[in-house]
Nucleic acid binder design. Structure first.
Length: 646
DNA sequence: GAAGCGTTATACTAT
DNA sequence: ATAACGCTTC
């Protein structure tokens, strides 16, 4: 089976002998071209294990591999495809002599924040007005990903008092140190460590450069300086084939730098820039509006998407009195479409923030519309799942202080202080067994606490059994802790099934730490025909025949917090652009004019800027409807909030 | 001194 | 839902 390509796509897919940057606008067949290139190279005799495919999410990697398999058969299973984080960790694990990270535990954002809290508490006594732990993690993470010293970053890009800056720098050092002591790797460490060794050790660099002939990179505009260092260190003789679109860059907040796109030609000698310009996804009406949005920017994107399709289908913008009317209308519209033969799965609802969709979610539940939420709280972040995983992690290593703190403090009469003391006492011990002996001496008659850990270790080789055992063991504690235990316990069945697919329990935990699965009630039932509810960020790279963008209103586009900061406001514009360009046949935007919390938040920030993106709309571009539904009925609905989604 | 309880405030995007 | 905080109990 071959793939049909237009001349530009074909030229890109079959490009030879040089590095290439492919500038591909939304819907121009970016994924198709990458797959076609992989197939072309394989057809030309390049061995599958000499190809490296770097994507933005694992979901995207899986999708590409699936489509490639359709084309060329099973041979592709040996292609290394995944995120930068995945690839780096995989490679480091396979080269223990150079990296020494075999026993490291990968920690997620929650764990980072948890650890940061411990450190912050230490400084908080003497210094007032320190940023909160989550913000401190953001600062450290951003500096790392942009490869700057924390002090430089703070001075150039923030406005903290000099004495606060000094403390933050110290905290950042402590944070790094504390991670090393615990043998933790966070997302940033994975990239940093790999990039560092790659550039420091010429022998290692030569070995890694010898691994691949072609490196294909998706979503180049969202790569950060650290990721650039990795690509730069791995090229030659390997050829880079990077695909991206500066108009879709929406991850500057975590260090993405579109210099990686703009400066490609200067940075990579003997490279060419190719373009894909014809849009196959959307109707011209949808593209006219998207083009208009970009033209309002003072940044020259130099981009006018042209539809290959003939139909116009003008986008709609519908006004409501409040978010419940908005949600009720969407639910009703979905039901009508479904009744007249449309599939649920052909509908996507795009939200700027996870909790901006709360009313929509309530109405979906109320109307029994099957849906899945992408981009929210993941299964592994739910409190009860964390409890269980921490018991398992505690059994895996007596040095994992976050896991031990959580496990120990679940028990009555053990709080932070007691737990910390016990953990300190275990630290010098060489093995988990000896550490447990130390613990036993301190716990005296409360041997149950140790039995739990032993119980897990007894079944160490059977991932799904461990989950069962741990869940059974923790049941009495959790029943006391959570009043909705009956709802929560079902997650452990799912968890057990997922774990059963992995070689080892720790491999399972690691996989889902790097690639969080969001699971809503429906997804757990593993249905296929469901409406997708997603954040604009998670929608990148996907498409849907019918797209609803909700809360397209002042304070959301641009988001209040970005107001007054040029680069951030422009990123917000691109977020809306990404959302609009997901639509294939119909684009329906909705907004509410209640002076909701977000809008009034703008006032609280003291910002009165008139910078709403959908102001001054041309009648030719959008049909605006007023669907005022009368008095609000807020109290009629149970509001689903982001945190009780699970 | 530490644990535990009730009260209050809280909010973006994510590998 | 959960963190932070102050207050009471062990």
């Amino acid at each position: 089976m071959t793939i049909e390509l237009n001349p530009q796509q074909k030229h890109a897919a079959e490009f030879e002998d040089r590095h290439a940057l492919v500038l591909a606008g939304a819907g121009t067949g970016k994924t198709r071209t990458i797959i076609a290139r992989a197939a072309y190279l394989i057809g030309r005799g390049v061995s599958t294990h000499r190809l490296l495919l770097l994507t933005f999410t694992r979901r995207a990697a899986k999708e590409m591999i699936r489509r490639l398999t359709q084309m060329i058969g099973e041979a592709d299973s040996r292609i290394m495809a995944g995120t930068f984080h995945h690839f780096c960790l995989y490679t480091m694990r396979r080269m223990p002599k150079y990296f020494g990270v075999e026993n490291a535990t990968v920690i997620d954002r929650d764990d980072q924040v948890q650890l940061m809290k411990l450190i912050r508490g230490h400084y908080h006594k003497s210094t007032q007005q320190l940023p909160r732990a989550a913000e401190l993690v953001n600062l450290c993470s951003y500096a790392r990903n942009t490869n700057q010293a924390t002090a430089d970053y703070l001075e150039q890009h923030t406005e903290y008092d000099p004495d606060i800056m000094e403390v933050i720098v110290k905290i950042a050092q402590d944070f790094t140190h504390r991670k090393q002591l615990n043998n933790y790797l966070d997302y940033d460490d994975i990239l940093f460590l790999f990039a560092k060794k790659l550039h420091e050790d010429p022998v290692l660099r030569d070995r890694i450069r010898g691994f691949y002939d072609h490196i294909l990179v998706d979503e180049m505009q969202d790569t950060n300086p650290l990721q650039w260092l990795i690509l730069d260190g791995m090229r030659d003789p390997a050829k880079l084939f990077c695909v991206g679109d500066d108009a879709q860059s929406i991850y500057a907040f975590r260090g993405a730098d579109f210099k990686n796109v703009h400066a490609f030609k200067e940075r990579v000698p003997d490279s060419v820039v190719l373009r894909l310009e014809e849009n196959y996804r959307s109707t011209q009406g949808i593209l006219d509006l998207s083009n208009w949005l970009l033209r309002q920017s003072s940044i020259p994107y130099d981009k006018e998407l042209q539809a290959h399709r003939r139909t116009l289908s003008k986008p709609k913008l519908i006004d409501f009195d409040n978010e419940f009317d908005e949600a009720r209308w969407i639910a009703q519209d979905l039901i009508e479409r479904h009744e007249t033969g449309a599939d649920w799965k052909d509908h996507m609802i795009i939200t700027r923030t996870g909790w901006g969709a709360r009313a929509v979610e309530s109405l979906m539940v109320e109307n029994n519309i099957p849906y899945r939420f992408i981009g929210g709280v993941s299964l592994l972040q739910a409190a009860h799942v964390k409890d269980l995983l921490c018991l398992i992690r505690a059994a895996a290593s007596h040095l994992d202080e976050l896991a031990w703190t959580r496990y120990l403090t679940m028990w009555p009469r053990i709080g932070d202080v007691t737990a910390t003391r016990m953990i300190e006492a275990m630290k010098p011990e060489p093995s988990i067994d000896q550490a447990l002996d130390v613990l036993r001496a301190r716990l005296k008659d409360r041997t149950q606490i140790i039995e739990g850990v032993k119980g897990v270790l007894d079944y160490w080789k059977e991932p799904s059994r461990i989950i069962q055992e741990a869940a059974h063991f923790l049941k009495p504690l959790m029943m006391k802790r959570y009043d909705n235990w009956d709802l929560r316990r079902h997650d452990f069945e799912l968890l057990g099934r997922l774990a059963g697919r992995h070689r080892s329990i720790m491999a399972f935990i690691e996989t889902y730490t790097l690639d969080p699965v969001t699971a809503t009630v429906v997804e757990r039932l593993e249905q296929d025909d469901v409406v997708t509810l997603t954040t604009a960020h998670s929608a990148k790279g996907t498409e849907s025949p019918v797209c609803y963008i909700i809360r397209v209103e002042p304070g959301v586009y641009p988001y209040v917090k970005s107001m007054g900061i040029f680069e951030q406001e422009e990123e917000e514009r691109r977020i809306l652009y990404v959302a609009m360009t997901r639509a294939q046949d119909e684009l329906i935007m909705t907004r509410t004019y209640q002076r909701g919390m977000l809008y009034s938040a703008a006032g609280r920030f003291g910002l009165q800027e008139n910078n709403y993106f959908m102001e001054d709309l041309d009648d030719d571009l959008v049909d605006i409807e007023d669907a005022g539904y009368g008095p609000d009925r807020f109290s009629d609905y149970d509001v689903i909030r982001p945190w009780n989604r699970i």
